Simulated scan of single mutants.
Amino acid sequence: MRVCIFGAGAIGGYLAVSLAKAGADVSVVARGPHLAAMQASGLTLRKDGDEQTCRIRATDDPRQLGEQDYVIVGMKAHAVPAVVERFEPLLGKDTTVVPAVNGLPWWYFHAAKTGTVLDETWLESADPGGAQWKFFGPERAIGCVVYPACDVPEPGVINHVSGDRFTLGEPDGSDSARLRLLSEMLIAGGLRAPRKARLRDEIWIKLWGNCSFNPVSALTGASLDVIGADDACRRLIHDMMAECKAVGEAVGARFGVTIEQRIKGGTDIVGHKPSTRHDVELGRPMEIDPLVSSVLEVARRLGIATPSLDSVAALLRLQGQVLGLYDRRPRVEVAIRPQS
């Protein structure tokens, strides 16, 4: 089984080693010192006190890899539209694309049957100009909700911090052969990979925290436990989650936990700062649109008021612009890719 990880950073690298352990023919697309280290010495995973190094084909040129059975997208969601045409050499007639990303994914409203004007459309905030929708085609997509935490302490090395679950689902909720095969491969590599008919519910549960805790931490520099211990900030998080829940329910999502339970789940993690704050501290482009703007776009399209989310999002965007870490991208015009 040929699998390419496009973007072999922390999560992509973790997946690459795990799939190689399962016996898949794995390749990665990467760049810079991380790529050079993998080409020279392989990709090393540090997990639970052990260290394992795999020799994996690594390149910055997808043309060297050929058509794949699965392409797993390990880049951050906002970085993909501008480079979508680089995926061309990897795509055969039956290639499956698996975006392992945060936020509302570009395929979300394919086969969603929400009964709203959003069905069978893309979100501009998640996929400017429909770049991925048009190029990949939503019928290629399998959804993936990512739970592990990993980092790259040095080029060529992935450090596993916590978690091993990658929840998978077809956009139409079916238990397809390609979904079962991907799940079985991940499980054989030592990961948990449950298949969910209602994957969108898990997307919203994770997004609940991403659209509230992430902006507040990015703006304040506070860890989740510190945010939860501040009464005013905790009330703000509660209000933002209530607005997010209303938006999610309007497109059919079910929230199986209460807002207070979700807040407690975040604030019980002492010292943790979410990825958007790490973007600020490391001077990386901020992941704002998939996590926050996407929720607001759905709200505007459906006429739902989100005053708390609107206010915090305005501050977050301004912070990103002032720091030079956020620039709302223009529409990316991509031709519809002909089928092989």
Rank of each mutant, 00 (worst) to 15 (best):
A193C: 09
S125I: 01
E249D: 03
V26W: 01
T95V: 09
D231N: 08
E184M: 05
G13I: 14
D127C: 01
G209H: 13
V117C: 03
G256R: 13
H160W: 09
G248L: 03
R57N: 04
R31M: 07
P138A: 09
F166A: 03
L315C: 15
L316D: 04
D50G: 03
P330T: 10
V157C: 14
L236D: 03
I56P: 00
A82F: 07
T95K: 02
G303H: 05
D239R: 11
V247F: 04
A131P: 06
A250K: 09
S293R: 09
T276S: 12
T276M: 15
L291I: 11
A22M: 09
R31Y: 04
H34Q: 10
G137D: 03
I304F: 06
V29Q: 15
V257C: 14
T220Y: 04
D25G: 03
R46K: 04
V334G: 10
L219A: 06
V161I: 13
G13E: 08
I263Q: 03
S275N: 02
R200I: 13
V152T: 13
S308I: 08
L123H: 05
L325Q: 00
I56K: 02
V83A: 09
A232K: 05
P171W: 12
V334C: 12
D201W: 05
E67S: 00
V251H: 12
T306P: 00
D164F: 13
P307I: 15
R254L: 14
A299M: 04
A16L: 15
T267C: 06
I304L: 13
P128A: 02
G42S: 08
T59S: 13
A126P: 00
P33R: 12
I56H: 03
D172N: 09
G265I: 02
G221L: 12
D279M: 11
A126T: 15
G156I: 11
S125Y: 01
E139T: 06
V280C: 01
G66I: 13
A335V: 10
V73R: 02
P338C: 07
L323C: 07
P153Y: 14
D230G: 05
G13A: 07
R200C: 05
D25F: 01
I187H: 04
R198F: 05
G324Q: 14
Y147M: 06
V322Y: 06
S223W: 03
M241C: 04
H78T: 02
D289K: 00
V145I: 14
S174F: 05
P81Q: 10
G143N: 11
V71E: 01
C144L: 10
P307N: 14
G74K: 08
R2M: 09
